[in-house]
């Protein structure tokens, strides 16, 4: 069973790792991070902040966009391109197929993010001669955020066409990023049904802010371990729920 799963993950990984979108995203991000770290405009303290800030933004942006584009079309192309038939004719469950598809794409994007992260950490090492635990933690949470975005794209891809999935995932991602600041403020300003709806929407949307430790990294702030644990559990649970819903949706889908 595990061998079959790993074979599927490998197929999904090999497909994802060949996609141009991933190559372009990773290369561009690495170039931007490298420029931010090598071109000197400011004194060292400001330069390091800029490297951290740019690096974290680029890793998140490139990772999230790659994941959204990879996941949104994966199922659609497998079904429309009839690639799914020889695989589903094997003694494997659809849940395994979907999980492997997700894991393979996530593995490919993680590889790209690791290259970007290595560039960032190398530049920080050059400037500071050390790499803080906070930098590693912040990058790890970026991986978690990208995994969540991917799970969301996977869920939406079981319901919509690739273009619609990309649009909706980015829309939800954007709303999820605004949530802390904007939606809660909006809920406080409203009453009755409107307040209830905004609160419900706010609860359902993924709270992307929970994973963003960029500011803490840039300003050398510490984050309580309890918060990190809670955020990690939240991220894993949310992504897991999305994958479960995708499996449920795909289970009886006619291919």
């Amino acid at each position: 069973m595990l061998r079959a799963f790993l074979a599927l993950v490998k197929l999904s990984f090999l497909e994802a790792v060949r996609r141009q979108i991933l190559h372009v995203m990773v290369l561009l991000s690495m170039v931007v991070i490298a420029i931010a770290g090598t071109v000197t405009f400011f004194d060292l303290g400001v330069q390091v902040k800029i490297v951290k800030d740019t690096g974290m933004v680029m890793i998140l942006l490139a990772g999230s966009l790659s994941m959204v584009f990879l996941m949104s079309g994966a199922l659609f192309h497998d079904i429309e391109g009839r690639l799914v038939y020889p695989v589903l004719a094997r003694p494997i469950s659809r849940a395994m197929y979907l999980l492997a598809r997700y894991a393979g794409a996530l593995g490919a994007v993680s590889l790209g993010m690791t290259l970007m992260s290595a560039t960032l950490l190398a530049l920080l090492w050059v400037h500071l001669h050390y790499v803080s635990a906070m930098a590693i933690t912040a990058i790890a949470f970026t991986y978690l955020e990208v995994a969540l975005v991917g799970a969301l794209a996977l869920l939406l891809s079981t319901l919509f066409t690739p273009a619609m999935t990309v649009a909706l995932t980015l829309f939800v991602y954007l709303l999820g990023s605004l949530k802390m600041g904007y939606l809660q403020h909006l809920a406080e300003r409203n009453t009755g049904l409107a307040k209830w709806v905004i609160t419900a929407v706010s609860a359902v949307l993924p709270n992307m802010e929970a994973f963003r430790l960029k500011d803490a990294l840039v300003h050398d702030l510490s984050v309580p371990t309890g918060y990190l644990l809670l955020a990690a559990v939240y991220g894993v649970a949310y992504a897991g729920l999305c994958v479960l819903l995708s499996i449920w949706r795909f289970h009886r889908r006619e291919v």
Partner: peptide, 29 residues
């Protein structure tokens, strides 16, 4: 116990038949 050959088969274009066979052997147990 089933081996299935679809009408108008499509496989990942970047794989070689050999690589595909190894993947399907694993899937077939």
């Amino acid at each position: 116990v089933v081996g299935y050959m679809p009408e108008q088969p499509y496989f990942p274009r970047y794989l070689t038949p050999g690589e595909l066979m190894y993947a399907h052997a694993a899937l077939a147990g």
